[in-house]
């Protein structure tokens, strides 16, 4: 369960104060696929960053599973993210000089796994996303959809409970966007992951369990359950 309780995030830009989030409270049960939606500047990415442990709230409580993220040091947050969170970015953020399988192995460098075991885990993750036969390709030898699949494999390779995705379909065509959303749905349904996604893509509504709408830093609808066909 992800619990966000009366969270605010204030940024200072020179003498100005920007209220990115104001008094947001929500709960996301384990094993659900949720979308954070809203116009640009609504605070959805800020909320995602707080849930992922990339940022700290100005006030309020962020709790993911048993872990209260408030007050953790930068190193503690980094260690927590390494063990519990998988990241998917809009522009994939793969390391261009490493092959697909080497990119997938990167998060495993933070574990105690031996090299052979790391390779086995990375191959398994790549096979889950359907790219076992492309493992030795560099990112620039893969299509956008394939690169995002590699990024998903990298996100799941340490078997985290939580996967956060920031505009994962933002750089893809319709066909690839549908494939990626299906894959994220599969992670939730087959592997019981909690998936939190920021998106502008209206197609996402067909795949998620729940959407949260934000506007100007405020949650405007709480927990809207979405019915799936």
């Amino acid at each position: 369960m992800i619990e966000i309780h009366q969270v605010s995030r204030l940024y200072r830009r020179g003498v100005d104060e920007v209220h990115a989030l104001e008094d947001v409270s929500l709960q996301i049960p384990d094993g659900t696929f949720v979308a954070l939606m809203g116009p640009s500047g609504s605070g959805k990415s800020t909320l995602l960053n707080l849930i992922a442990g990339l940022d700290q709230p100005t006030s309020g409580v962020v709790k993911v599973g048993a872990q209260n993220l408030n007050g953790l040091s930068e190193d503690q947050l980094a260690a927590w993210r390494a063990a519990h969170v998988g990241f998917i970015f809009q522009f994939y953020n793969l390391i261009p000089v490493l092959s697909a399988i080497e990119n997938v192995e990167v998060p495993l460098l933070l574990t105690r796994l031996a090299k052979a075991d790391r390779r086995k885990h990375a191959e398994l993750a790549l096979s889950i996303v359907g790219l076992a036969d492309r493992k030795h390709h560099l990112p620039n030898q893969l299509s956008g959809g394939e690169q995002q699949r590699v990024a998903i494999a990298r996100a799941i390779v340490v078997d985290p409970e939580l996967i956060v995705a920031d505009e994962p379909t933002g750089d893809l065509d319709a066909k690839n966007a549908d494939d990626i959303l299906s894959l994220l749905r599969q992670l939730k349904s087959e592997f019981h992951k909690t998936v939190v996604m920021v998106t502008h893509d209206p197609r996402a509504i067909r795949y998620v369990d729940q959407t949260f709408h934000l506007e100007q830093g405020v949650l405007v609808n709480g927990a809207t359950a979405v019915e799936h066909a």
Binding site: L54, R81, A82, I95, L110
Partner: peptide
């Protein structure tokens, strides 16, 4: 820069 951001997000320390 983006690469570094991704590595830090994944859990690599400063």
């Amino acid at each position: 820069t983006a690469e570094i951001g991704a590595l830090r997000a994944i859990g690599f320390s400063r």
